[in-house]
């Protein structure tokens, strides 16, 4: 495995292997001295062409705890804005002899294009409305810790699905691990061609959250941006919250063991109520905490290769 561009590139055993390694990485987090020598002398560039707080921080911490030299670059501060092509920009950094670039880019597919141009490893840290593989891996890790193996489990993914890279990676990841997935959103927020896609890949599509909630083991709420209203995707925030929000009433529809995820940042009162976000069954903070461990595992699998993680 040289790059992590899309969950679609990973075999189920590779996903499982990354999640298993993350378990031992997670233990590092509880140590007083959080440092492994694994990536000493390796250089990892966090190249973010789009703003990010948690993903960037968690990749940076993951690199530092594994003793890599990590450097943060932002697209805005480089020659990208001066008319240089993206290829020129990344080749310049690659030529400095780096081992890995972790790319966040507002355009779908940019990390895959960059992987074709450069020699170093590329990790997709979120590309446009395409994928966010490390988020899906940490979500799977979190769900697995809570529910056990995901084979046969039923997960609903609810929210602004058409604009969500988290959706695409999670759908692929959960399906690869054998989970049953149902997408829930108003028709305007479903990805294009969702019915053909569902038929090809074996998942379900519903416009009725009340009908789906009693059946699931986990519900993953995705952020809905208020700006979408101006695009005519839905009439008002109130209508969205009433029809698709995880309201206090809907919490009562969930099975006792069912859990709640949200990749953040949350819009409390829109897609998720405070009651749901702060419920005992909410895994929101577990997701954040798993982020560093899973990203350490990703760095390990791409840069350290086979062998003992410790």
């Amino acid at each position: 495995m040289k790059h992590l561009l899309s969950i679609a590139d990973l075999a189920p055993e590779e996903i499982t292997s990354i999640l298993d390694t993350a378990v031992s990485m997670h233990e590092v987090q509880d140590r007083q001295v959080k440092k492994l020598p694994t990536l000493r002398g390796r250089t990892v560039i966090n190249f973010f062409f789009e703003d990010s707080t948690r993903t960037r921080a968690s990749f940076e911490i993951a690199g530092k705890w594994m003793s890599a030299d990590t450097i943060n670059l932002t697209g805005k501060g480089t020659s990208v804005s001066k008319g240089e092509s993206l290829r020129d920009t990344v080749l310049t950094i690659d030529a400095m002899g780096v081992d890995m670039m972790i790319i966040r880019h507002p355009a779908s597919g940019a990390p895959a294009q960059i992987a074709d141009w450069v020699d170093c490893s590329i990790v997709n840290a979120g590309d446009g409305t395409h994928e966010h593989p490390s988020q899906a891996l940490l979500d799977a890790y979190t769900l697995r810790r809570s529910l056990g193996e995901l084979e046969g489990r039923h997960v609903a993914i609810v929210g602004d699905l058409t604009h969500s890279r988290v959706l695409r990676s999670n759908l692929l990841c959960l399906r690869a691990l054998g989970a049953h997935v149902t997408l829930v959103a108003p028709p305007t927020l479903m990805p294009s061609g969702v019915h053909a896609w569902a038929a090809a890949d074996g998942f379900d599509v519903s416009y009725d959250l009340d009908e789906v909630l009693p059946q699931v083991d986990a519900v993953m709420m995705l952020r809905v941006q208020r700006e979408r209203m101006s695009g005519g995707y839905f009439p008002t925030a109130k209508e969205y919250a009433v029809t698709y929000g995880l309201t206090p009433r809907r919490l009562g529809l969930l099975q006792d063991h069912a859990v709640i995820c949200h990749p953040g940042p949350m819009n409390r009162g829109l897609e998720i109520s405070a009651d749901a976000a702060d419920a005992a069954r909410s895994l929101v903070l577990d997701q954040v905490s798993a982020g560093v461990a899973v990203r350490m595992s990703i760095l390990y699998h791409l840069l350290a290769g086979e062998g003992d993680a410790q």
């Binding site: 779908s108 395409h130 294009s192 061609g193 053909a196 090809a200």
Partner: peptide
């Protein structure tokens, strides 16, 4: 082209 592929690729349809 807006359709299943643009949905999968996350490209504006």
């Amino acid at each position: 082209h807006e359709g299943e592929l643009s949905g999968r690729l996350g490209l504006p349809g």
